[in-house]
Amino acid sequence: MAKQENMTADESAMDETSRREAMAVLARATQAELEAAWKEWRDKPEVEPVRGPETGLVMLRGRIGGGGSPFNFGEATVTRATVRLSTGQVGHAYALGTAKGKVRYAAIFDALWQDEQTREDVEDTVLEPVRRRVQARTESRAAEAAATKVDFFTMVRGED
């Protein structure tokens, strides 16, 4: 019995980690990507807005010296939305910027991701293409920066 409870706790922790990752991908998607994915989605449930989409501010924090005590160093615009699907799931989304349409779609896909029936579809048709695009950009940026790495060499002094 105790063992079974542990497993459930582990599973829910794993679920939370996967959902955080899914939400992170949705936050990095473009409005066009999510809009196209929603358009293609078969068996669309009814979507009821619970909150938003609404734009507000998040105060960003840094740390003194990079790793010391926190300090507030400026705000960023953030848009959030919460929706409820006719299937019962409630989806949340938060993303930097003011794109209300995008964040509403992100909340819908967060709700669909939570439904065991549709999670795989969300992973394959929505998240995977965004992950690939973001990964490709990250890699090409890193490669471009790496090409500007300084190779120091010692001058030949010609003493003899």
């Binding site: 507000g56 501010l57 998040v58 924090r61 840094g62 740390r63 926190p70």
Partner: peptide, 15 residues
């Protein structure tokens, strides 16, 4: 920025 509500404070960024 004064027209917008504040949603909260971020976790400190890790440089």
């Amino acid at each position: 920025r004064t027209t917008l509500p504040r949603f909260g404070y971020s976790e400190p960024i890790d440089t």
